[in-house]
Nucleic acid binder design. Sequence first.
DNA 1: CAGTATTAATCAAACGTTTGCATTTCTTAA
DNA 2: TTAAGAAATGCAAACGTTTGATTAATACTG
Lengths: 347, 347
Amino acid sequence: MPGARVTIKDLAKRMNLSVSTISRALHNNPSIGEETTKEVWSLAKQLGYFPNSVASNLRRRKTNMIGVIVPRIDITFHSHVISGVEEIAYKLGYNVTIYQSKDSLEREIAITSILQTNMVAGIIACLALETQNCSHFARFNSLKVPLVFYDRVSNDLEASKVIIDDFDAAFRVTEHLINTGCKRIAHIAGCQTTSIFASRLEGYKAAILKHNLPFDPNLVCCATDLSYEEGARCTRKLIRLPEIPDGIFCANDYTAIGAIQVIKKNNLRIPDDISVAGFSNYPVSTIIEPALTTIDDRAFEMGKTAARMLIRQIEDRDVNIASETVVIRTDLIVRDSTRRQPVKAEN
Amino acid sequence: MPGARVTIKDLAKRMNLSVSTISRALHNNPSIGEETTKEVWSLAKQLGYFPNSVASNLRRRKTNMIGVIVPRIDITFHSHVISGVEEIAYKLGYNVTIYQSKDSLEREIAITSILQTNMVAGIIACLALETQNCSHFARFNSLKVPLVFYDRVSNDLEASKVIIDDFDAAFRVTEHLINTGCKRIAHIAGCQTTSIFASRLEGYKAAILKHNLPFDPNLVCCATDLSYEEGARCTRKLIRLPEIPDGIFCANDYTAIGAIQVIKKNNLRIPDDISVAGFSNYPVSTIIEPALTTIDDRAFEMGKTAARMLIRQIEDRDVNIASETVVIRTDLIVRDSTRRQPVKAEN
DNA sequence: CAGTATTAATCAAACGTTTGCATTTCTTAA
DNA sequence: TTAAGAAATGCAAACGTTTGATTAATACTG
């Protein structure tokens, strides 16, 4: 009797009403008299009644739970996305449950099973690096559980996506480097089986070619995890090239930071000798000296958008929205790492 | 029939067995024949059966859900804690659902109601800055829902805690500053109604006094949110003091970064003119130049520990573990921001 | 062979809601 | 006065499991 939960039945007994009446009253169903409704509410408060959503979920055959799969929670980008998701979910009465795939396909698959078992109402996911084939997500189509991918998305599956235009963003960064006088621009690229990194490379190439600069494969350095260390390693290689680059576009901010520090250690000046640009606008990009020019990928916005899309699909289930793809606007943020003394495009 | 979930009943019908037999078989209950058990499993796989944990939770009157309340997900410290929680929870078969209090008491209260409604098995929480009184958590005592606080904890409530020894850590940092030659050490302190920040101030004081340095209240700068900007602001004030400090211990890394940048802008050298130390060991502390001496608060470890404690309590419910408090070891990480030319303690 | 264990499976209730379909009571119109 | 409609409430099944109590069938013991 101490912690014994108060249920709808208890209220019913106390008031000599049926449980259905209580249930309806608590939902302010108009078919229940105003008087009664008020009394039910007040008794509920008095007795400390709390609805049991597990029971409700079972009966209604749906939950208010949104499952989120991220590679890792402690990566800035993802924690910002999650924050955005939670923000919207909370406002709209949904709960958020989180899983880390650790970039492992096996774990991602296991997680999809858990989500199915838990009857989540919808899923937001960023694919694991290992994931090439998304068949483990296919089940959610037949279960009518809406699915929104963000950032690293799948094309072989009917599902909504929220992404940025990586090609365009990379193009703009590269063009910015060109416009500030760089003629020999290197690119530290991410794993090319992941489409976002492939697009960034493409955007880079396109800008180079558009401006009639030669495309030199030696200037493209393929990284795998885009860590600080990889950035440093690639940069050491680049500055030992016979013809040293005068600009480096890095596929993310971590590698850019690594690049900057290596360049400084080698007594080259940034941006005078080499300009550096990153991608993501992590907080650290304002701290590093010189401050890093980068692309703001608006992770928080991405999370909010994904959540909104998902919830709309959950609630309009019957309308059966065809999957939609939203492209989030990105911003080029110019800081000192590319801010050269005013030069004309041609020197 | 397309997305129709396969249930235990379907299996029962197909095999001419009762649902209870199926249920037991799926739990490998020894009272079911080996033969039967095998067949049930194989049919389950064949039909794509997935257990419905909502139903199971209702019947068992408990869920596998751990509720986590953090001030904000996108703060490095908390995202690392969450990552640790998820890591352990996943391994042990629990799910993690996350809520941000945004440091608002009102929201924190609302979240506790949601958690109760959702029948979470246990709760891990870091109190909102606004929270002075924890009565809204009291209900979980009577509901027998275990509760583990981390970092910002409550003392007026029977609950487990996982914390670091803020006093000790602050003491060690300060002593380190003294040992490397600082004689006039300032402290940029956090909100003093929050016990962790009060303890850091105390630790600072204790070290000062132990080494017979004068304690000068003018050298203590109380901040509220410990942001980069506050760090910068306080530092500007400090370096305009008639007697400028030769060391600053900041209550977190953000403020320390702000301090460093202000000091550099004012053409003072770090650590030669002023040593700077922070608290938390955020990734940025290795990036800033000079690299920041700080305390590693081992957030990830904290999350893992909190999760382990919580789950143990959930599972040993009957044993009724008295609340326990675990203090996580912290490490002083010495970097260039305090690494002076070798000097004796006395110059 | 009677009696007792042992094994394998079934029965039926329960968990706390929600909801379609009655039922009751009261108005209102004809 | 009666039929019909509206308003307020009740009945009972259902959601998909789990589990204590029970039964049926088989094997074992003395």
